[in-house]
Nucleic acid binder design. Sequence first.
DNA 1: ATGAAAGCGCTAACAC
DNA 2: GTGTTAGCGCTTTCAT
Lengths: 324, 324
Amino acid sequence: MVTIRDVAKYANVSVATVSRVLNNKGQVSEETKRNVREAIEHLKYRPNLVARTLYKKTSSMIGLIVPDITNPFFPALARTVEDRARSYGYTVILCNTDGSTEKEADYISSLQQKGIDGIIISTNRSEADDFKDIDIPLVALDRIVNSEIPTVTAENKNGAIKATKHLIDVGCQKVVHIQGPRELATTNDRKDGFLEVVQEADIEHVVVEADFDIKVAEETAYQLLQEQTNIDGFFAGSDVIALGIIKAAHRLGLNIPEDLQIVGFDGIEMGKIFIPSLTTIEQPIYEMGALAVDLLSQQIEKKELDKHLYEFPINLVIGNTTKR
Amino acid sequence: MVTIRDVAKYANVSVATVSRVLNNKGQVSEETKRNVREAIEHLKYRPNLVARTLYKKTSSMIGLIVPDITNPFFPALARTVEDRARSYGYTVILCNTDGSTEKEADYISSLQQKGIDGIIISTNRSEADDFKDIDIPLVALDRIVNSEIPTVTAENKNGAIKATKHLIDVGCQKVVHIQGPRELATTNDRKDGFLEVVQEADIEHVVVEADFDIKVAEETAYQLLQEQTNIDGFFAGSDVIALGIIKAAHRLGLNIPEDLQIVGFDGIEMGKIFIPSLTTIEQPIYEMGALAVDLLSQQIEKKELDKHLYEFPINLVIGNTTKR
DNA sequence: ATGAAAGCGCTAACAC
DNA sequence: GTGTTAGCGCTTTCAT
């Protein structure tokens, strides 16, 4: 390994001078600058970032913690976060918790020990003191944690209202909402929006819970459709759940959207690709990921944030799972 | 931040002793051990891994470089890699290159500067000297780079043979192979297998190229199906391409598998979920990811590898895109 | 069994 | 402008 010392020796200067040209700091004559750069080039020197981090206490690495990377929503998010992070010069460490609180705690602790500068987290936990002992910048993404942590999310309730109204508009008489895990504030907001509309419109309705997992959602929908008659509409708590519902309907020989209409939530790519393509509430994933990085960066730079909750507007996208 | 010094002071011992109990190395009396542990507990001390890495030159971090995290094949791979890595005590840094050689080089260089212990890479590059200047352990996953780098892949050619034979078995008379990017050795192996079978069987056939991208594949298939008549079978270079073909067929009102039969390659979850479910060549993604980590770990521990190319057997999984 | 001290590669005072 | 040197927090000889 070639170190700053080797460069200094080769260029006949001190390590301080090399450090100065490396960081463009302090006064160095043009000539020595050239010499040092030549030495660097010649020796193929690359600064050891570990040593730099040890001294400076900042690593230019940020963590992104997601519950399930195989859920298509998160790769999309990860990608935008990584893109934006790169533009700041951050490297992203992507951590997958499998929804396990233990793994999550593990990661947080180990990231801190590694000198990470900040963490963007999409977690299932939400007790107020879950994140009390973390003393590095934090941003909650998609999933609301508590009011002390800056949070980026979408207008979940409003989205649910739009989705449910759409189902009524296209003629549904008995509507089911399969919500995601009850621990998540986001899913409850969606449920609240749903309930507000169906109660107001006095529409027959059911609410059940499922994981953000196609198989689980499929089973849940399958059972419901067998047990109860007249269900003609579903508002799914996520696109993944919506795909499960389509599968269940398919197994039962129901036609979509003739017999059954479905609205999802998220706007993942797979919803557009699926046959039939999904009517859904689209979240601006790109903007959300980008803002999360911005907010994290601001905290890392010790800037004050003007507000702590950022809710993005959503958008009803009509596909082939509802009638036109 | 509480350091090893604080712990030493609190426990009335030297930092060396604290280090000894931390690492379970050297001789420490039971009593001082207890004292030190108490101090650690009381002060909530966590060792600074950056400092440790600086000294030991090993970070327990490995990099995983993938070309496109939004391609469902890679989250699946990433997950198994992360799982296995965890069991070794490694943290995975997941890097997404967007297929850009420049980003890839950036990542490799920056990972090395960060003291990463090794890299698992799924790359598009394959020139012999592309990776010559990397002096840390490397494993190529899914995509073959060159014979000097340990590689984990599937029996691509054999899989293609099985797929193509299956298409012939179910009655196809004119078969198209949409292969992935020609730069990849894996895709060419698949093409070779395809050609071997169709030529042997003297079946009318076409080979075209597309990206591992649904939209591109869809357009490619759409054009082919319009221009050429009698196409009744597709062997797709990947499941993602196969989904694109299904979309194209759907747009043209073709029935699957009655009018058109399709076999994919990979065995991603989405293929099982899609309607119709995909007939495909399934790679043992879990085993492949796990072995890649094993091989990397062996190199990091300076163990000799007995061989350099590991090809996993594949498996034809029959879905609803081919006749039974 | 324990401590003192050197050093991992870098940055930043502080001299000159 | 440039060099000397003291750390950053840790591990590891080498004494004792």
